[in-house]
Write a protein that binds this DNA or RNA. Structure first.
Lengths: 152, 152
DNA sequence: GATGAATGGTTACAATTGAAACTATTCGCC
DNA sequence: GGCGAATAGTTTCAATTGTAACCATTCATC
């Protein structure tokens, strides 16, 4: 019994479709952040996580943003140069940085966060409340599964 | 009435979660294709679409793979160098190429396609049949909406 | 308390990607 | 049939990203 699923059509292949969706979404967002705030997406992620959890180290930021430490290091450099971040070092372990938003950084956050939520809202307006819940659950399950499949 | 949705938590922000999911999936796939077949993802997309629709031009390939013409040009170069593709030119319009898989290219396709479908199957095993249908529908709607939001 | 392994973070270099300019050909129009 | 605009595809150069090597500091063990 050979279902339609055993022939490969790119336009029905889930990894491809996810990639197309994510690209469109990420590019829309990146455009806005870059144009209006001079922020890259990695920089925005760092700001978002530090707004909620101040005084994380770079590695802790990496864990919470799904970025690697090099990406965090570069995002932090940019934000420091723009004076949107203040960096000190842990007195107990001088390898560890402590990162927090400057006043300017907080201001960027309070201006960008509503835009981000607004975009998300507009995107999810395509779905019914039930579908929104389903999407959330599906993404969670797929991430868990994809991680397990990638593990070895 | 301020629901939980008006504070931004990266870990619940749909564009972020989509990006994380897509990265994990794409990297798993890219690893396999690269390691076992020396194929990049753009190259794989070109092969997949030409397996189904032979004799497309580069621009037609671009339309069907959501890639831009530069990405297609580079993928085609790699595939030509590996002798996995044959290129001729349209006799009526000599700007247009006609691309088709060589014997070697077809052989790559028949070996990669089952792996791709198998990965997709394993990924979707995390979901019930109902959820799989739902995912398909949700992705479709989100793509349509994201395109409209990006349009202006 | 010295010494090698581990950790936090940065830097350097190569590979990938994106944007714009470029070539070749064809189309539209007079 | 000639001339400017448009199209197919490539190339070039800069910017981004990935990988590995690299410091500095701390930890574990002796």
């Amino acid at each position: 019994m050979t279902g339609s699923s055993d022939k490969l059509h790119l336009e029905h292949f889930v990894p491809y479709r996810l990639s197309v969706l994510t690209n469109i979404v990420s590019m829309s967002i990146a455009d806005t952040y870059e144009r209006e705030f001079g922020l890259t997406i990695p920089q925005w992620r760092v700001i978002a996580v530090l707004a909620r959890y101040p005084d994380l180290s770079a590695i802790e930021v990496a864990e919470r943003t799904a970025m690697d430490k090099v990406a965090v290091s570069r995002a932090v450099q940019g934000l420091l140069a723009a004076r949107r971040l203040v960096r000190t070092y842990d007195s107990g372990d001088r390898r560890r940085s402590r990162l927090r938003l400057s006043t300017a950084g907080k201001s960027v956050y309070t201006r960008v966060a509503p835009l981000a939520l607004d975009y998300e809202k507009k995107l999810l307006d395509a779905l019914s409340p039930t579908d929104r819940k389903a999407l959330d659950r599906l993404i969670g399950r797929l991430v868990a599964r994809a991680k397990r499949l990638a593990a070895p």
